[in-house]
């Protein structure tokens, strides 16, 4: 072997897994890519993550709070603050999952480049969703801190919120990636935002308790992952949730993640592999 061949051998990448097997290295490669991109966009992302919940809390908290006072046993601003954490997680994960993933696939040809490297569709989907989940885990805490600034009493249970935000963020990111792979044009996003986002975040117990809604809406809300995220966040912040209920909520979110992972990977593969 001459020097040049040796140099090439020396620099060859380390791929140990059997082909077809799911590899953490590939997922990490996708996440590393997003991390580099984030280095360029963190200011705008952080601005949106802080300003949006602050405005919600200011307007709804003080505006509606003055009229409502208490709701379901909590001050309205506490009720709303914890609800907005979950909404923020949904928006931080699902919106970019739908929009950015669609643009990267359809217009920027980003996935062609990534899939030409030793990365498969499942790893691509997982990496993209995990990144958004991690981001949600961090940014999901921002509205909580803002709510504390507005009078929410801090407690140890709040330390669980980033984990709930991560779990919910992963679920919504996978959901968003699946939707982005289902829709065929930018115009279809109108249907998604109006027909899916709005009911999801309105019928989840974020701004008001579901108990006042018709029975069938309450039943339908049980299938809404945001409802379970809201319940877990309130349980963590206010306490009082029994272990059984917590397991049910976590179980629903995990079930949703598994279902969405399969759907997202399947549908994305249909889009990027012909």
């Amino acid at each position: 072997m001459n020097l040049r061949q040796q140099a090439r051998e020396d620099a060859r990448p380390e791929v140990h897994a059997r082909p077809g097997r799911f590899e953490a290295d590939a997922v990490m490669g996708v996440i590393a890519r997003e991390w580099i991109l984030y280095g360029q966009s963190w200011r705008a992302t952080t601005f949106a993550a802080v300003v949006e919940p602050t405005l919600y809390l200011l307007c709804f908290g003080f505006g509606m709070g003055a009229l409502i006072g208490t709701l379901a046993g909590y001050s309205y601003i506490d009720f709303l603050g914890t609800g907005i954490v979950a909404v923020s997680v949904m928006f931080q994960s699902m919106m970019p999952a739908v929009i950015n993933t669609f643009i990267k696939r359809r217009f920027l040809h980003t996935y062609e480049g990534i899939l030409a490297a030793p990365v498969d569709v499942r790893e691509l989907v997982t990496g993209e969703a995990l990144w958004l989940a991690m981001r949600s885990g961090v940014y999901g805490c921002v509205p909580l801190l803002v709510a504390v600034g507005f009078g929410l009493r801090p407690g140890l249970g709040m330390l669980l919120v980033p984990f709930v935000a991560f779990l919910a963020g992963f679920a919504f990111a996978l959901f968003g990636i699946w939707i982005s792979a289902v829709i065929s044009s930018v115009r279809s996003m109108d249907y998604v935002f109006s027909g899916l986002f709005t009911p999801l975040f309105l019928v989840a117990g974020t701004f008001f308790p579901l108990t006042e809604l018709p029975d069938w809406v309450q039943t339908a809300a049980m299938a809404n992952p945001l409802y379970h995220a809201v319940a877990l966040i309130r349980g963590a912040v206010f306490g009082g949730m029994d272990a059984g209920s917590a397991l049910v909520h976590v179980g629903v979110l995990l079930g949703f993640i598994v279902l969405m992972w399969f759907l997202a990977a399947f549908q994305m593969r249909r889009r990027v592999v012909d």
């Binding site: 990448p13 290295d25 590939a26 991109l37 280095g39 980003t110 490297a117």
Partner: peptide
């Protein structure tokens, strides 16, 4: 399909991860 908002070095770094350059 280069990332336009990133620098030359960042674009290459990104793919060094994807290609799993040690």
């Amino acid at each position: 399909n280069l990332d336009e908002e990133l620098t030359v070095e960042q674009n290459l770094r990104m793919f060094s991860y994807l290609y799993r350059v040690p």
